[in-house]
Design a protein around this nucleic acid. Structure first.
Lengths: 145, 145
DNA sequence: CTCGTTGCAAACTCTTTGCAATAAC
DNA sequence: GTTATTGCAAAGAGTTTGCAACGAG
C-alpha cells in the first residue's frame, strides 16, 4: 500500500502540501528538517507555510511514514521509512543516510542487558555514523582514518 | 584520575559552579538538561546563572566527562560517563537511566553494514528504552506489555 | 595580578498555538 | 456543504552572544 492510500485509509486528507513534502522527501538522500524542507521548496518556487511543514512531519512521523535520523549531537532530520524497524547509517561528512536491514544480531545483547540491568527492554535506537563511499574517496588524501 | 584533576590538567579552572553541577550530576540517575539543572539547584538554594549551566555542560561534554542521553524523540539530557563508550537504557516511564557495558556483539553487525552499504563505519549511537524494575512493578496492573 | 569564568540582558532560532480563510472529500 | 487543513501572526521555549564584574590560580 502506498503512502497516499495509507493516509486516506487512516482518515486524513491528501492535500497539496502533504503531497509536495512527501515528494521532496522521497527524492532526497539526506535527512531533512522542517526549516530545510521549507527552504528547499521555496527555492523550487513552491510556497508553503513553515507551520504546515511542522504539522505534516508530525503527522507522517506518527504514522510511521518517516523516521527520525540522529547525528551524535541530536536529531538532524527525517527520512522516509519502510514499515517496521528503521536503522540508518549517516555520513559524517555529507549527511547522506542509508537505511539498512534489521537486527537479529540484537537479541543476544538484549538478553545481556536484561540480565545486567533488570530493565524490561522494549525499544532501541541504533544508528551508525561513518563515511559514505563518495566521501571516502574525496577524503583519501588528508584526514583519512 | 578524578574529574577535578582531569579538568585542571586540561587547563580549566575548578570553579564553584562547575563543582556544584558535577556534584549534582553525580547524584542523579535521571538524565538532566540545562533547565532541569538550573531548577534543581535553585530549589536547593544554590544560585547559578542558566548560561553557566549551558557552558559547563558544553565543556564537560567536550571533555567526555558527561554523555548525552536520548529518548525516542531526541536528546533528553546528560549523565556522567565513565571513559570509553557509553550506552544507556532509559526507563520510558520515569526516565531513570543505567549505563551498560560495551558491545563486542556489535562487530558482526558492523561487518554486515559495511558489506551492505559500503560505508566506512566509524561511530554508533545505541540506546535502549524500556521499563526499570521499579516501574515494572508499578505498572503491573494496567498497560503491562 | 592576570586571565579564565560568571552573570545578566538581550538577541536569536526553533517550535507551537489560535483563529479565520481555504480546499479536500 | 462539511470539516479537516492551511497560513499568518504572535506567543513560547530553548539556546547563544556581548560585555562588564568577579575570582581561581
Amino acid at each position: 500500500m502506498d503512502w497516499q492510500t495509507f493516509l486516506s485509509k487512516a482518515g486524513y486528507r491528501l492535500s497539496e502540501p502533504r503531497k509536495t513534502i512527501m515528494k521532496l522527501m522521497e527524492t532526497t538522500e539526506k535527512p531533512l528538517n522542517p526549516l530545510g524542507i521549507h527552504r528547499l521548496l521555496r527555492e523550487q518556487g513552491v510556497h508553503l507555510g513553515l507551520v504546515s511543514v511542522y504539522r505534516t512531519l508530525e503527522l507522517f512521523l506518527s504514522l510511521g511514514l518517516i523516521s527520525q535520523v540522529f547525528q551524535q549531537d541530536g536529531l538532524v532530520g527525517y527520512l522516509p521509512s519502510s514499515f517496521g524497524h528503521h536503522h540508518f547509517i549517516v555520513c559524517q561528512n555529507c549527511q547522506k543516510a542509508v537505511e539498512f536491514a534489521g537486527t537479529e544480531d540484537m537479541q543476544d545483547l538484549i538478553q545481556r542487558i536484561r540480565a545486567e540491568t533488570h530493565f524490561q527492554v522494549r525499544e532501541h535506537l541504533l544508528q551508525f555514523f561513518g563515511l559514505c563511499p563518495e566521501c571516502q574517496s574525496l577524503l583519501k588524501d588528508g584526514e583519512k582514518q
